[in-house]
């Protein structure tokens, strides 16, 4: 590694921010439940990436890896729970679109 550490950080940081923007946009600009979940997954990807980069740059790779492993396990459970909710919602409304099936207000 020839470049200075702050510069290396910025290099990775740009990609982290891009993934974040992408994930947030994907979550906010849609009314489809599964599409929101995909946006959330992209956000999780970006933060996983950032944790690994943080561990790499600060020399705590083992700690960062241990954390990322836990994050991945939690991520899977969240996705499974979300999938269950999506299926239940679909069974009740026959749509994945919250805009078509909106009933809660405020």
């Amino acid at each position: 590694m020839t470049i200075e550490i702050p510069q290396a950080f910025w290099y990775y940081f740009i990609f982290f921010v891009l993934l974040m923007i992408d994930g947030l946009w994907c979550m906010l600009a849609t009314f489809n439940l599964l599409r929101m979940l995909i946006g959330l997954e992209i956000l999780m990807k970006s933060v996983t990436f950032f944790l690994i980069v943080a561990g790499y740059l600060s020399g705590r790779m083992a700690l960062a890896q241990a954390m990322v492993i836990t994050v991945i396990v939690i991520e899977v459970v969240i996705v499974v729970a979300a999938a269950g909710i999506v299926l239940g919602f679909f069974r009740k409304t026959d749509t994945l679109n919250v805009r078509n099936a909106r009933s809660l207000k405020g």
Binding site: I78, A81, K92, T93, S103
Partner: peptide, 17 residues
């Protein structure tokens, strides 16, 4: 119920953010 799923969904999504 549909409303319960919607409530759970919002909870899950915001808590994940």
């Amino acid at each position: 119920g549909k409303e319960a799923y919607e409530g759970a969904w919002k909870y899950l999504l915001l808590s994940a953010v």
